[in-house]
Design a protein around this nucleic acid. Structure first.
Length: 822
DNA sequence: GAAATCTTGCTTTTT
DNA sequence: GCAAGATTTC
């Protein structure tokens, strides 16, 4: 878990003899190379110089990457601690470690530099913290703390947080950090951000972090980058040290990560980047596809290897995925192929509404798991439902709950993000370091101690006046009798407790005799005299703080679960030597791998599905506006659409054997019914590889009779839209015949459709046609008169409900109100 | 200071 | 339609 001990290997950097000797060693046999195809083998054996491995979905990328590491080690090109191998997630790092170990048939002795960008940066930053004005024991803030800190700054600047939310500022700062801009480097073009105060507040925020001896996630990279840029000697040391650099998911790197890598790679120029431009789906959080597209320019003379043989999916699935991704511009261009010949076509089905879609998928899952769908009986573990947006999950959860189908949601709120875990962690943080003001703020009134805003403000003021941390501030406030009543007594107990916990966690500063004089004892070890393990200490903290009791008396349905989580948390401590080590781990490794037993269908977002594969995949909600997401297209235009298309590609390529795409004509969005057209990506599915499922009559009147799809069946759409000639002739998804036909059909919607959704359509097209004085009707507020128009909102004087501003699409002309139920 | 009520604004998410 | 946050009420 904690690999810091392994760092010692680096300390002996001066002693190169061992390394050189092992490097000079003749290559040992390499049985691990046998199972590779020619491209994989090329990627593994091109050890020196820059290498770009373009690895399509399911082409054995991790295999090639791990074999390459094994090969580097086996041939003596590098010692384990001279290889820098970066991933984005802890999961990927872990997988890489175990697979390298398996290849070499032994545990890899210390690969301390294999990990996420962030984990590696923490290591680097702890060594050189002083170069950016931090102490080596800096704390890493989570998003919660970050927002709280920003809120304080915003309040101090007397900015209206409602108009300029802290989240927005946090997002802005994050983006700037992703681009490797320190406050001084933010370009003038960003000056108008956050009401023209963005840059200034970013600067304040960084100052505040420095005084708190804290960093946020973005800082981990940015600080290290700053150190590299400002201290040539430090950079040179690492450039020399890292003989080989490997990067996973290169298409997901942002500017800061790219610069970081470039600087380090300038030493030996042995950098191997693995990625797939077609799977770049994180542009919205700063990833730059440009990095991978530019690789050959950035690293002249690079070897480029394409892995195109797919070992995952059937030919039809691959063809469908290729058909979709083909529509993107500026790809590096790969064509996946497979040796497989058998396989089902991609299945496409339309539904009347979202509920029916969920019902149908539920039945399919049951049929497949019961072996009732002709062929093989499959485990629920082999099936996944991949959605565009998490709110789509609800329909499936509801449905699966009612039919008793076991499911798991992947990527929900993670364990360490839960409120009770964060609260408990804040107590631990205070015990380890009472200077942690953010932790104090979090728990000072949790559980309720009668210390509200006023009392907290007093503590803040006192602390600031005396220039001390909040715990000491509270202590002073108490001694000055600046606080009365129940709160004072409770605060006294809290402050004393923190001091006691701190002693127990860190131990009093003890002097220990050492050969030449006195040195302080290692404070990271528990004081043997107290004989209190960190686990017992943790339990004691949770008891004495009243936090456990707080949830025991809580009668909300979540309370038992939260207590259970707290127990889990304490249990997780067992794997660590002390509280400090644990806190460090949690700050970076926020994953929750509590694998419950029993086969379950997985439900997750497309983003969460990247890197995973399932025999059967369901891709619901392929409707324009939902997928591709309207917001994506509005905000990022063609770039956004192309990223959505890559998401579609990722989705389809998750499937090994059966891939089922579906869409619904109607869906409830924000409580209102909305009609939607099938996704333009459906038009892009090549007809020859798609099997349109004609829905059985049992949905009587549903799909078959549905207006939208009455005759423009998915079959028609697939035929018309997938025709490559259309695209070649300059037609795009918007004006392909299939698309146009769909739109024509959608105009002449028969009456069988629910009235709400019919009105919705009329409303949307008519929304701009309101004028002041119009008599209108709203479902909830009743009749009223338009008093003003602001963008898409109408200012309406309602007869009963008063004056309100309402989005125009929820308003209809009064004379049409008779169509509206209720 | 805490509970009850009202308003608001809604992708994707890792570290 | 819903959940989180802000505001108002007790």
């Amino acid at each position: 878990m904690n690999d810091f001990s392994e760092e010692d290997a680096f300390e002996q950097a001066g002693d190169r003899a061992g390394g050189l000797a092992s490097r000079a060693m003749a290559a040992r046999p390499a049985p691990y190379l046998d199972g590779l195809n020619p491209q994989q083998r090329a990627a593994v054996e091109a050890l020196d110089g820059p290498v770009l491995m373009l690895a399509g979905a399911g082409t054995g990328k991790t295999k090639a990457l791990t074999t390459r590491i094994a090969h580097l080690l086996n041939t003596g090109h590098a010692r384990p601690n001279e290889i820098l191998a970066v991933t984005f997630t802890n999961k990927a790092a872990r997988e890489m470690k175990t697979r390298v170990a398996r290849l070499l048939g032994q545990t890899v002795e210390g690969m301390p530099w294999m990990g996420t960008f962030h984990a590696i940066c923490v290591k680097l930053l702890r060594r050189h913290a002083e170069l950016v004005g931090l102490k080596t024991n800096f704390t890493i803030l989570d998003t919660d703390d970050q927002i709280r800190l920003l809120k304080q700054l915003i309040a101090a600047e007397e900015i209206d947080e409602k108009r300029w939310p802290a989240r927005q500022l946090a997002g802005l700062i994050d983006q700037w950090k992703n681009r490797a801009w320190t406050p001084a480097q933010v370009p003038a073009s960003e000056a108008s951000a956050y009401n023209h105060r963005g840059t200034e507040l970013y600067d304040y925020y960084q100052q505040r972090l420095k005084t708190l001896n804290a960093v946020d996630f973005g800082d981990l990279l940015l600080h290290v980058l700053t150190i590299f840029r400002e201290h040539d000697d430090v950079l040179a040391q690492y450039q020399r040290w890292f003989r080989y650099i490997l990067v996973d998911e290169y298409q997901d790197t942002n500017v800061a990560q790219y610069m970081w890598l470039r600087l380090l790679a300038q030493g030996h120029r042995n950098i191997c980047c693995v990625g797939d431009d077609d799977q770049s789906i994180y542009g919205w959080r700063g990833a730059e596809v440009g990095n991978i597209l530019r690789f050959e320019k950035d690293f002249p003379g690079a070897t480029v290897v394409k892995l195109e043989q797919n070992y995952r999916s059937t030919p039809h699935i691959l063809a469908a995925a290729s058909g979709v991704i083909d529509a993107n511009q500026g790809r590096l261009g790969k064509t996946l192929f497979t040796d497989l010949t058998e396989g089902e076509k991609v299945r496409l089905i339309g539904h009347w509404d979202g509920e029916e879609e969920a019902r149908w998928i539920g039945e399919e899952v049951e049929a497949m798991s019961g072996g009732r769908r002709g062929d093989t009986q499959r485990s629920l573990d082999d099936m996944a439902i991949l959605v565009r947006a998490s709110h789509q999950m609800r329909a499936f959860e509801d449905r699966f709950l009612t039919i008793g189908l076991p499911y798991r949601v992947i990527g929900g709120p993670r364990f360490y993000e839960r409120m009770e875990i964060r609260d408990a962690m804040a107590y631990f943080r205070l015990a380890v370091s009472p200077d942690d003001d953010l932790a104090f703020e979090r728990v000072v009134n949790t559980p309720k101690r009668g210390l509200g805003d006023k009392a907290q403000q007093k503590i803040q003021v006192t602390a600031r006046e005396h220039g001390v941390n909040l715990v000491d501030g509270a202590r002073i406030l108490l001694s000055e009798k600046g606080l009365g009543g129940k709160g004072a007594a409770e605060l006294r107990v809290l402050v004393d407790s923190i001091a006691r916990w701190h002693d127990l966690a860190v131990g009093p500063v003890r002097a220990a005799p050492v050969e030449d004089g006195l040195v302080l004892e290692d404070l990271s070890q528990p004081d043997p005299r107290t004989r209190l393990s960190h686990i017992e200490l943790a339990e004691q903290i949770l008891e004495e703080s009243g936090y456990t009791a707080h949830w025991q008396t809580d009668k909300t349905p979540e309370a038992p679960g939260r207590l259970e989580n707290l127990k889990e948390l304490v249990k997780a401590l067992e794997q660590f030597e002390n509280l400090q080590g644990f806190l460090e781990h949690v700050a970076l490794i926020m994953d929750n791998e509590t694998e419950e037993q029993g086969a379950k269908v997985s439900i997750m977002t497309l983003h969460a599905a990247k890197g995973l594969e399932f025999p059967c995949v369901f891709l619901p909600g392929w409707e324009d506006g939902l997928f591709p997401s309207q917001r994506s297209m509005d905000e990022s235009g063609l770039k956004g659409l192309e990223e959505e298309r890559r998401l579609a590609y990722v989705g389809i390529t998750r499937a090994e054997e059966v891939c089922t795409i579906s869409f619904a004509a109607n869906r409830r969005v924000y409580g209102q019914w909305q009609s939607a057209l099938p996704s333009r990506f459906i038009d892009e599915l090549p007809e020859a590889h798609v099997d349109v499922l004609t829905p059985p009559g049992l949905y009587g009147g549903g799909y078959g009779a549905a207006g939208m799809s009455a005759s423009a069946s998915p079959k028609v759409m697939a035929e018309a839209g997938s025709n490559l000639h259309d695209r070649a002739a300059g037609a795009n998804a918007y004006n392909s015949p299939g698309w146009r036909r769909m739109q024509e059909r959608s105009q002449s919607r028969p009456m069988s459709q629910p009235r709400e959704s019919r009105n919705m359509v009329i409303d949307m097209t008519a929304s701009s046609s309101f004028t002041e004085g119009d008599r209108v009707f709203h479902n909830k507020f009743g009749y009223g008169t338009v008093a003003g128009i602001e963008g898409d909102k109408l200012d309406i004087e309602f007869e009963k409900a008063g004056r309100k501003k309402v989005v125009a699409k929820f308003i209809i002309e009064a004379d049409r109100a008779d169509d509206v139920p209720f």
